[in-house]
């Protein structure tokens, strides 16, 4: 079973989390053109190997996370909050 180290809650079982999707996607502005929305919503790099992906700690602090994980071995290399500003806040309070 995967175990994900949530920056807030510590190392927890994958069953506490929900997989989001590809973390490398940059969603375009709400008024961007149809093509860029098409590419962001429908196309996937579908990486074989290390990828950044989003997870939500849905049965915990409900943070969205950026997880770097190998899609072949399932090894997890890093976990950070998707919300960059929050991370700064956390560090400031340390």
């Amino acid at each position: 079973m995967l175990q994900i180290k949530c920056p807030f809650c510590g190392k927890r079982d994958q069953t506490e989390f929900s997989y989001g999707g590809d973390g490398q996607i940059t969603y375009p502005a709400l008024n961007a053109d149809e093509d860029s929305w098409h590419d962001a919503v429908f196309l996937r790099q579908n990486i074989y190997g290390r990828q950044i992906e989003t997870w939500q700690h849905s049965h915990g602090c409900r943070s969205w996370l950026l997880v770097e994980r190998d899609t072949v071995t399932h090894e997890i290399f890093s976990v950070e909050l998707a919300h960059g500003d929050w991370q700064k806040q956390v560090e400031k309070n340390k």
Partner: peptide, 13 residues
């Protein structure tokens, strides 16, 4: 298994 994977191994949940 709810998350993207190329591994032909399943997990316990």
């Amino acid at each position: 298994d709810w998350y993207k994977s190329y591994a032909q191994k399943g997990n316990l949940h």
